[in-house]
């Protein structure tokens, strides 16, 4: 199973509700979190995800990469990404 395969099987809804069919766990993501999840599922890299965030939102901070890494850490912690995954 590829690093982001598990993400592809997540049920991800418009509201930011996330259902992990393997564990039955559910989560809430905000809009920017949903965008990153979506980007990871499409196999985008860090720069491409950052570009999409900059395109979709106003007031994006200069150190956006840090927010993305922080979010990836949350996904790793919730076992939605393998422990050695990094963008």
């Amino acid at each position: 199973m590829g690093a982001t395969d598990k993400l592809k099987d997540l049920a991800l809804s418009e509201s930011g509700f996330v259902f992990d069919p393997y564990t039955g766990s559910t989560f809430s993501a905000n809009d920017t979190g949903r965008k990153i999840l979506d980007g990871l599922r499409r196999g985008l890299d860090r720069d491409a995800i950052a570009a999409e965030l900059r395109q979709g939102w106003d007031g994006v901070p200069d150190d956006l990469g840090r927010d993305i890494d922080d979010f990836v850490l949350l996904l790793r912690r919730q076992h939605l990404l393998p422990p050695d995954f990094s963008l």
Binding site: F27, G33, L75
Partner: peptide, 11 residues
């Protein structure tokens, strides 16, 4: 929309 830091909260 105004940018918000991305979060994921487990239920």
């Amino acid at each position: 929309p105004r940018y918000e830091r991305p979060v994921l909260i487990r239920h």
